[in-house]
């Protein structure tokens, strides 16, 4: 066998042994503890020992969705940050970029995810969806159509849906902030 150790000896002799904390875990610890949570965002960890699964509540303080409290589940797998976190809306909401199953159309959650992005980028992206719903990338086609054609009616629909109303036969969850 080659004598690798002789090369090693020349190096700084400080112990470089690492703990058994996985790279994904360290990265999540770093991302989470450095989150810049504004007053409109709150995280909740059902099992505080598990940093990989939590919920995020967004309560927009401006824009069309002001007054609502929107809850997303965030699941991070052990291949983070190679793979993006999985984010779903846990409520049925009326939003052009969120479908009735809670899937979210946000580029950095899928096709534009890169390991240099972090949880903060995801949170900012989600917040942005409530400030600027985007009719061009629809997941809820009815909502997108309404936003494009009749902004006033769309606004009205948002208000109705947030109170737990019914729009064109679809029942939405009540999401008014407590």
């Amino acid at each position: 066998m080659i004598k690798i150790w002789s090369m090693k000896k020349n190096e700084d002799a400080a112990a470089r042994r690492k703990p058994k904390t996985s790279a994904a875990q360290i990265r999540v610890q770093k991302d989470l503890t450095e989150l810049e949570l504004s007053a409109t965002m709150k995280t909740h960890f059902p099992d505080p020992a598990d940093l990989l699964n939590f919920t995020l509540t967004i309560t927009p303080d401006e824009g069309m969705y002001k007054g609502g409290a929107f809850v997303f589940s965030v699941n991070i797998n052990t291949n983070y940050p190679h793979e993006p976190p999985k984010v779903k809306c846990t409520q049925t909401i009326y939003h052009p970029n969120v479908d009735l199953e809670g899937n979210v159309c946000l580029n950095i959650l899928r096709e534009d995810w890169k390991p240099v992005l972090n949880l903060n980028s995801v949170l900012v992206g989600l917040q942005y969806l409530f400030l600027e719903p985007n009719a061009d990338d629809p997941l809820n086609k009815d909502a997108a159509e309404e936003l494009r054609k009749n902004r006033e009616q769309f606004l009205q629909n948002v208000k109705t849906s947030m109170r737990g109303g019914n729009i064109r036969g679809q029942q939405y969850d009540r999401v008014v902030a407590q």
């Binding site: 703990p19 949570l37 505080p48």
Partner: peptide, 18 residues
């Protein structure tokens, strides 16, 4: 700084709940 061991969280600077 935020500190953890392989099995437990010692002190985390954030998020507020933790």
């Amino acid at each position: 700084p935020s500190l953890t061991t392989a099995t437990k969280q010692l002190y985390l600077q954030g998020p507020p709940q933790l």
